[in-house]
Write a protein that binds this DNA or RNA. Structure first.
Length: 694
RNA sequence: GCGCCCGUAGCUCAGCUGGAUAGAGCGACUGGCUACGAACCAGUAGGUCGGGAGUUCGACUCUCUCCGGGCGCACCA
């Protein structure tokens, strides 16, 4: 609603500027005044025009205001300060329009953001190496990505959600090395030799699965947890720390073992590759389970093994050579390689560019960036090749597909998107820039412009948190503001552990409060879960993307103040009003539509807070559009919190059920209904459920 | 050495394309439950927006520089 009025005002203002001064401006600055006493909409345009028109800003503002008069939806315009133009809305009209605004995003008839024609977007997120359990850093990635998907869909876009699986990389190879060379957990009936074979590993997995069945609350037997520790052990082994310290020959031998395993996995069709496939698929399955706890689902899982075996790179290589993006280096340190110029590099014609990015090594193998270029050509439908597809995992409402060399006949279409978003942490901005540069170099300018590296900073641990968890922390690290999580060292907070902790904490809270009364005991586990997930998702979304999160259990386990549960609690309060009143929001909004003379409730000092609540509720689409334009979900998180805050304030000041004037009571109920509707909608876009009680 | 990010209240963070008296949460201190459930509300204290210069009618926001912190700059992924 607000956005509509904003656009209407802007149009009108443009008309006035054209008629009066013969001016065509490409952008009109609009802002939300800092205080309602300045109106609801403002522009400092007169300051900008002062020089051009050689007049004082205040004079210009007065002239414009005189010409603005009489715009539908607006009560009036005035000049304030040194030359601000403030607009006042027709409050009753605005409130009516907001009350009648859609309640479901699938209804595209009215208030949904529509920027140009509907875009087909592809969002890649999560993309955890399938060799260990997910940790809090991965949670930030997945929650940001999933939330952004929800925002794009709310705006009417068709979105494919992809989770890229690097199942043939060094990280998977490292765990395979661990299985092949390090001692495994003793499984009855598996000999010392057998434990290092495919058969032995299968027995170990079956054994672990049985242990998990016996006691699901002990996550240490989960396969991803097992790999978490094994991966850390392997890295120690490479450093030869737990074998023979300082033995260089042994270290070299370890490195060679690792390289051999990696090459065999990449090549495929051998026992090592089979082990890698088994291990990575099992860990991937665990990642999907973990993410599902947070209500995060995927449409497609493209794997590196298929990018290799289906020769995506070979196809891309030809195109890159044709377009001259890659060139063969004849001298210098990159002699014998195919390289590309880095973005922003300025190299004089004929000069040797030693800083160029190597895409094909002198031994003929392709680097990570090369494979990524091929994959991104596919994303935009520019490669001329496609994956095979197999169903992999069935969610309650849809199927998740995985890449395959030979897929099934019938499958959905993936790839060929118009816009892509890659949720990848800020440390990878260089390789991402290289891929964009390659697309641009090939002449795919539109695609390069619609390629968004949705970057975010890491989640680190506060030193206090690290100590709490029992890690050894050096003197030096203790002085730092935060310590980086490291999968290699097994240093970090595992996602499932954190979620378990959160659920336990919310469960204790729910029990202590006797949520829902004595008869509602059966609903409490589910409610505790909803609150825990709400707390976690909000925690990851309240920070803007480029701020490092220094993780601490104290903050993450907080349910008060600017948190998810605070917003959920506002929802529950609103619902309780309707429950106690024996009515529904829909019924009250219908009654409200018939109510006359509502302007009386919106004027005067006492009504300012109620009007402010309506006004914020009306800003839904403005916030949505801003989030998409800036790739920043934190704006919506803030919006939801402020809305909850204003509702709580309203709730406290105006006791609805004891209101004696029936017309005013209807008005107050309608206010609560709109706040409730907007809170539930905003939370759903954040991927947070609204519990019935708490 | 080069590139990117950060530095705002005791702590953790917001601050839309430069715009009106710089905001929130936590923590501290006051006060408010026989109430639509206090996971709440009201109030108080607390800031030379890292330092300096510049652009501008106007700078937390843009430019330069310095200081402090983080992360990248492989024929690793």
């Amino acid at each position: 609603m607000y956005q509509e009025l904003q656009k209407r005002f802007e149009q009108h203002l443009r008309g006035v500027l054209a008629a009066k001064y013969d001016l065509q401006l490409d952008s009109i600055p609009l802002e939300i005044p800092p205080d309602l006493k300045f109106g609801e909409l403002a522009t400092p345009i007169a300051f900008e025009l002062a020089r051009k028109l050689r007049k004082a800003p205040r004079i210009i503002a007065q002239e414009i205001v005189a010409a603005l008069a009489g715009l539908e939806g607006f009560a009036g315009f005035e000049v304030a300060g040194a030359g601000y133009i403030n607009a006042r809305l027709e409050r009753a009209e605005a409130v009516r329009s907001t009350a009648g605004s859609i309640s479901h995003p699938s209804d595209k008839s009215k208030d949904v953001v529509r920027v140009g024609h509907p875009v087909h977007s592809l969002v890649e997120h999560t993309s955890i190496n399938p060799n260990k359990a997910a940790h809090i850093g991965h949670l930030r990635n997945a929650i940001l990505g999933d939330t952004f998907v929800r925002l794009l869909r709310a705006a009417g876009q068709k979105v494919d959600v992809q989770n890229y699986i690097d199942n043939t990389g060094v990280q998977v190879a490292d765990v395979v090395v661990g299985f092949l060379h390090l001692e495994q957990s003793g499984v009855p009936g598996v000999s010392a030799e057998e434990q290092h074979t495919l058969a032995g590993i299968k027995k170990l997995m079956a054994y672990l699965a049985k242990e998990v069945d016996k006691n699901p609350s002990n996550r240490e037997n989960q396969f991803d947890y097992y790999c978490w520790y094994l991966y850390a052990r392997v890295n120690n082994w490479y450093l030869a720390l737990d074998v023979i310290e300082q033995d260089q020959a042994l270290v070299a031998k370890c490195k060679q073992i690792r390289l051999d395993v990696l090459h065999q996995i990449e090549a495929g069709n051998n026992e090592f590759a089979e082990i890698a496939e088994l291990v990575s698929t099992a860990v991937l399955q665990r990642h999907l389970d973990t993410m599902l706890r947070l209500d995060i689902e995927y449409d497609f899982l493209p794997r590196e093994s298929e990018i290799l075996h289906l020769k995506f790179w070979e196809a891309a290589f030809e195109k890159l050579k044709q377009k001259g993006v890659l060139y063969y280096e004849n001298e210098g340190k990159n002699k014998g390689c195919w390289v590309m110029t880095r973005p922003g590099a300025e190299i004089a014609e004929g000069d040797l560019n030693e800083d160029a990015k190597v895409i094909v090594r002198s031994n003929g193998t392709v680097t990570y960036v090369g494979k990524d270029i091929a994959y991104h050509l596919w994303k935009f439908g520019l490669l001329g090749k496609d994956f095979g597809y197999k169903p992999f995992f069935t969610y309650p409402k849809h199927e998740c597909w995985i890449s395959a060399e030979q897929g099934v006949e019938a499958h959905p279409q993936f790839g060929g998107a118009q816009a892509i978003y890659n949720v990848i942490d800020a440390r990878q901005s260089d390789p991402q820039a290289n891929v964009i540069q390659a697309l641009r170099g090939m002449g795919y300018t539109d695609q390069a412009n619609r390629y968004t590296h949705f970057s975010y900073e890491m989640v680190a641990l506060t030193p206090r948190c690290a100590v709490e968890l029992g890690y050894e922390v050096s003197e030096e690290d203790l002085k730092r503001p935060y310590i980086e999580v490291s999968g290699r060292k097994g240093f970090g907070v595992k996602a499932d552990d954190l979620i378990d902790k959160l659920i336990a904490a919310t469960r204790a809270e729910v029990d202590a409060r006797q949520t829902g009364g004595a008869e509602a005991e059966a609903a409490r586990p589910r409610i505790a879960e909803q609150i825990a997930i709400g707390a976690l998702r909000y925690f990851m979304l309240k920070f803007t993307r480029n701020s490092v999160i220094a993780f601490d259990f104290k903050d993450a386990l907080s349910f008060e103040g600017e948190t998810g549960p605070y917003i959920q609690y506002a929802v529950v309060r609103a619902r309780n009003i309707f429950r106690k009143a024996g009515t529904t929001p829909e019924a009250e909004l219908a009654a409200f539509a018939e109510l006359a003379g509502i302007h009386a409730y919106l004027e005067g000092d006492a009504a300012e807070d109620i009007w402010a609540l309506w006004l914020r509720a009306a800003r839904r689409t403005l916030v949505l559009e801003q989030c998409i334009a800036t790739s920043e979900p934190a704006h919506l998180a803030k919006h939801a919190f402020q809305l909850a805050q204003e509702f709580n304030n309203f709730y406290h000041k105006h006791h609805i059920l004891t209101e004696e004037d029936p017309a005013r009571k209807t008005f107050l109920l309608a206010t609560a209904a709109v706040a409730l509707r907007e809170l539930v909608l905003a939370l759903s876009w954040l991927g947070i459920e609204s519990p019935e009680a708490m």
